[in-house]
């Protein structure tokens, strides 16, 4: 029966390290949390060293504004993942919302005319569509009790195919005159700061506060940590879970509101792979993928890291920008490895 007496030296060393690790990391709790921040600072230094235009106002605005869409979504994703969920549908959802929004605005154009009310109506429709899409995901997860991975894998396909169908395989374009009116929402700003950056900053700050200082954030962490304990502790587990998906849907709607004026169109490839970037940003930022611990400011840093890599590769011309995905992938895996060694301590 006891034929497994094989001393395994590799395992022994690992175990020794694991036994020694806690005292070390217990004394330096800040270090692992600051990892992503250090990585970001390194990237900025690297970028500045490689190209003098890197820190120019134009480039910084460009990087931040592009980060804003994924960023808003990733803040919402942080709550979903923290409470033990996942949403793969956000990229397709953004495309679908963009399509619906543009079609609706074009349809309303004859009655409402080109003007601010039309833009506001379009925004309201986008936010409403986001809310409903998130509600759909959330209800399937909480009421029908289907795994979030499965639910959102399904809705990811559904949204993507719906937008392709709406566009009839091509592109849905916003009426030219409306587009001119709407453009400033992406291209102009306040005190020289572009609107998407401002909105992203507000979302991030509100998200950070909600995670750390409100019941909602605390409950998300509790549910992700052990949903049974949360249930026994009088937490309305289903409603909190539902709320995380609705919040994420709303933020996808908001991101779309900021995104549509950039190109003025939507197609079957809009928002492609956004879900992966958003999830990657959350994980790089130090939120536990299995739930129970969320860090919104980390997510913001994760988003910035991902878009800086992109930007530096294009500016620096060191390696082909086609390798962007490779480098991002390496960083994501590294982030998870760091998390693993942290949690085993």
């Amino acid at each position: 029966m006891s034929d497994t007496t094989r001393p395994d030296t590799a395992r022994a060393d690992l175990a020794k390290q694991a036994a020694a690790a806690p005292s070390l990391t217990a004394r330096l709790p800040g270090l692992s949390a600051l990892g992503p921040l250090l990585a970001l600072i390194l990237l900025v230094a690297l970028g500045a060293y490689l190209n003098e235009n890197f820190l120019s106002a134009g480039n910084v605005t460009n990087v931040l504004a592009r980060s804003a869409f994924i960023g808003m979504i990733a803040v919402g994703m942080t709550f979903v993942i923290t409470s033990g969920g996942l949403d793969l549908s956000v990229g397709s959802m953004a495309a679908f919302i963009a399509g619906v929004m543009i079609l609706a605005m074009n349809a309303l154009l004859p009655t409402m005319g080109v003007g601010v009310p039309l833009i506001l109506a379009g925004m309201a429709i986008a936010l409403g569509a986001g809310l409903l899409a998130g509600l759909g995901n959330g209800l399937l997860v909480t009421k029908a009790r289907i795994e979030p991975f499965i639910v959102t894998l399904g809705t990811m396909g559904i949204f993507r195919s719906l937008v392709t169908w709406l566009a009839d395989g091509g592109t849905i374009s916003l009426d030219f005159a409306v587009r001119q009116l709407y453009r400033p929402v992406y291209y102009s700003g306040l005190f020289g700061i572009a609107w998407p950056i401002i909105v992203f900053a507000l979302v991030a700050i509100a998200g950070q506060i909600a995670m750390r200082h409100t019941r909602f954030g605390r409950y998300c962490e509790a549910i992700g940590s052990n949903d049974k304990v949360a249930l026994y502790s009088a937490v309305n587990v289903e409603r909190i879970r539902l709320m995380t998906y609705v919040l994420l849907g709303l933020l996808v709607g908001l991101a779309t509101v900021m995104y549509v004026p950039r190109l003025g169109s939507a197609s079957g490839t809009t928002g492609m792979l956004w879900e992966l970037e958003a999830i990657a940003a959350v994980i790089i930022g130090g939120t536990a993928l299995k739930g129970g611990y969320g860090r919104v400011w980390g997510t913001v840093i994760g988003v910035l890291i991902l878009s800086l890599i992109d930007n530096i590769l294009i500016l620096a011309d060191l390696v082909s920008p086609y390798l962007n995905g490779t480098i991002q992938g390496v960083i994501i895996v590294l982030a998870v490895v760091l998390q693993r060694s942290k949690s085993s301590a």
Binding site: I209, H213, T214, R215, R218, Y219, E221, A222, S225, N226, K228, V229, A230, Y232, S233, A234, V235, G292, Y293
Partner: peptide, 29 residues
């Protein structure tokens, strides 16, 4: 399994079921 969040600290555990009493919008730490 049902009583305590083993990964969380004492405070988070103590107040989990009565959090509504610790502040209206923001939790009063």
């Amino acid at each position: 399994e049902h009583g305590l969040l083993l990964d969380k600290n004492l405070t988070d555990n103590l107040t989990l079921s009565t959090l509504a009493r610790f502040g209206t919008v923001f939790i009063d730490s």
